[in-house]
């Protein structure tokens, strides 16, 4: 078994990579998204952003609540192109 700690499981991003990016000067969640694709997989950051927030807080000395979450992008859950393309209205 390896000793890598994964923070973002969709995009395979490790704790080490996040810490390195913070050292490079990427000190907000939005910037970590840009640099590493953190939280950009199918779960849209549900699994990793709060963990990343904790890492950022530890490394930068900012309090946990000071660190802003990125903009939430629609759709909230993955939806197929076929469903989105449909013209049918849901009649009750």
């Amino acid at each position: 078994m390896g000793d890598k700690v994964f923070i973002c499981r969709c995009e395979d991003i490790t704790l080490e990579e996040i810490e390195q990016a913070i050292d490079e000067g990427y000190t907000t969640i939005e910037e970590l998204k840009c640099r590493l694709r953190l939280g950009m997989g199918p779960c849209q950051g549900r699994g990793c952003l709060l963990l990343a927030k904790r890492v950022l807080s530890k490394k930068t000395g900012k309090t946990y609540s000071e660190i802003k979450m990125p903009t939430t992008r629609p759709p909230l859950i993955p939806v197929s192109l076929g469903v989105l393309a449909s013209d049918k209205k849901n009649k009750k």
Binding site: M40, Q44, R73, P74, P75, V79, S80, L81, G82
Partner: peptide, 25 residues
């Protein structure tokens, strides 16, 4: 946009209709 894009994209490539959109911005 989401509707228009999904409609046009599946018109261009119908086999993509089962592929899921995860984000728009």
């Amino acid at each position: 946009f989401l509707h228009h894009m999904a409609k046009t994209l599946t018109h261009y490539a119908p086999s993509l209709r089962h592929v899921k959109v995860i984000r728009q911005w």
